[in-house]
């Protein structure tokens, strides 16, 4: 009996290691391509294409980016600020909402869930949204225009609802109520500590969302000092795309530095680098035993 279990466990582990390792390699390959391209001279890329190992090694692209580093450093500042503030604020609101929506004694929870979900189905399009942010909320050219639009998503709220629902047994809430704790105290003292893996997941997604955002910079920010980091990457690529798509008849010649192929890739590395470390940091909250779901069974 015991031996049999061990052998099946062994097989399972072998399968697990093989699949995970193979998957990891597949996921890693394109990254090597990006990093290698960022370290190749621009001329070699244009003449020979990409290679896993740089054919003509060169640090030029990075040198060019960091020659005048204030732009990139300022953009880091903006992105970090927006990510931290947005994630904290969003998490606070979404955990409260998720908690309330899963309370079985909250009569209208289904109606309100629908009220929130409905917004994923219907939208008015870009024009009215642009007017809302600029003409009514007056967020144009401010950090609010970067934080507000991504603060909450229906998906993350419903996900939070489900995490709390499975992590916090109803009995715990009920007994706390009998002890005379009010709903906010229950949320704050009991629910939050129990929902840590859920908090970590939702927080991670929200933070990623803020970090990867460039669109709201493109739409709402005119002041170069307030551009997000990702916007720099997109703008480099879009500037070349524009030059490629505009016909000779438009007669547009841009003075100023025209970004090169290797610079695009170097920018991609610079822009994604730091956030890669967020996930390993979050991982430590994905540990079994933080929950007391046992009571439920």
């Amino acid at each position: 009996m015991k031996i049999k279990e061990d052998s099946s466990t062994k097989w399972f582990r072998l399968l697990a290691y093989t699949v995970v390792l193979a998957g990891s390699i597949l996921c890693l390959l394109p990254f090597l391509l990006i990093i290698s391209a960022s370290l190749t001279s621009n001329e070699a890329i244009i003449r020979e294409g990409y290679n896993i190992i740089p054919s003509d090694f060169s640090f030029d692209a990075y040198k060019l980016i960091f020659l005048i580093p204030d732009d990139v450093i300022r953009a880091y500042g903006v992105t970090i600020f927006v990510t931290v503030v947005g994630t904290l604020l969003g998490l606070l609101l979404m955990t409260m909402a998720g908690y309330v929506l899963q309370r079985k004694d909250f009569k209208y929870r289904n109606f309100f869930s629908f009220f929130i979900y409905f917004t994923t189905l219907f939208g008015g399009g870009l024009v009215p949204y642009y007017m809302l942010i600029t003409n009514y909320l007056n967020f144009e050219n401010s950090m609010s225009a970067l934080i507000w639009p991504s603060l909450m998503t229906p998906f993350l709220i419903i996900l939070m609802r489900s995490f709390i629902n499975s992590a916090v047994p109803d009995e715990v809430v009920e007994s706390a109520k009998i002890d005379g704790a009010n709903d906010f105290v229950i949320y704050y003292r009991i629910v939050m500590p129990l929902a840590v893996p859920g908090l970590a997941t939702v927080g991670l997604f929200l933070a990623l969302h803020y970090w990867n955002d460039w669109f709201h910079s493109a739409l709402f920010i005119n002041d170069a000092a307030k551009y997000q980091l990702q916007f720099y990457l997109y703008n480099i690529i879009n500037t070349t795309n524009f030059l490629n798509s505009i016909g000779a008849g438009a007669g547009v010649v841009l003075s100023g530095p025209v970004p090169s192929e290797s610079m695009k890739m170097a920018m991609a590395v610079v822009v994604t680098g730091p956030i890669l470390f967020l996930y390993p940091f979050i991982q430590r909250y994905f540990v079994k035993g933080l929950t007391i779901g046992a009571v439920k069974g």
């Binding site: 024009v127 007017m131 600029t134 003409n135 739409l219 005119n222 170069a224 916007f231 703008n235 879009n238």
Partner: peptide, 23 residues
């Protein structure tokens, strides 16, 4: 006067929005 620049990212979209939303 403030010199605003649309950048080349979605410039045509932005041009459209600037003119059609009464900015």
């Amino acid at each position: 006067v403030k010199f605003n620049y649309t950048t080349w990212t979605d410039w045509d979209q932005k041009y459209k929005l600037l003119l059609s939303t009464g900015q």
